[in-house]
Amino acid sequence: MIGWEFILLYLAAGSIAGFLAGLLGVGGGVVIVPILMFIFAAQHFPPDYMIHLAIGTSLASIMFTSVSSLRAHHAHGAVNWGIVKRITPGILLGTLAGTFVVAKLPAGLLKGFFIVFIFYVATQLLLNLKPKPTRQLPGTGGMFVAGGIIGMVSSFVGIGGGALSVPFMTWSNIKMHNAIGTSAAIGFPIAVAGTIGYLLNGLPIKNLPPWSIGFVHLPSLAGLVVASMLVAPFGARAAHKLPVTTLKKIFAVFLYIIGTKMLLNSIY
Rank of each mutant, 00 (worst) to 15 (best):
L137Y: 02
T170G: 12
S228C: 06
K261I: 09
S212W: 02
L109H: 11
I174T: 02
G235T: 05
I51F: 05
M37H: 09
G160V: 08
L59F: 01
P204V: 05
A184F: 05
S155N: 12
A41D: 15
L224C: 05
P204I: 01
T99E: 14
L70M: 13
I83S: 05
I16V: 13
P167Y: 10
P138C: 12
W211T: 08
R237Y: 05
F215I: 04
L8V: 02
K241N: 07
M37W: 12
I62D: 03
A17N: 07
G56P: 10
F144H: 03
F19L: 05
L93Y: 00
G214W: 01
A107E: 07
A75H: 06
L20T: 12
T134P: 14
I267P: 00
L264M: 05
L127E: 12
G139Q: 06
K132Y: 12
P89C: 00
G194F: 08
A41M: 13
I83A: 03
G162M: 08
G29M: 04
A72V: 09
F64V: 01
F6G: 08
R135E: 15
I186P: 05
V79N: 02
I213T: 09
A236I: 07
P106C: 13
K85F: 00
R86Q: 08
I257G: 03
R71Y: 07
V166N: 10
I205Q: 10
G161M: 10
G158T: 03
G22Q: 04
G147F: 13
M1P: 02
A107F: 00
H217L: 02
F64C: 00
H52N: 14
V157G: 11
P243W: 07
V157Y: 11
L230R: 07
F100Q: 10
S155L: 11
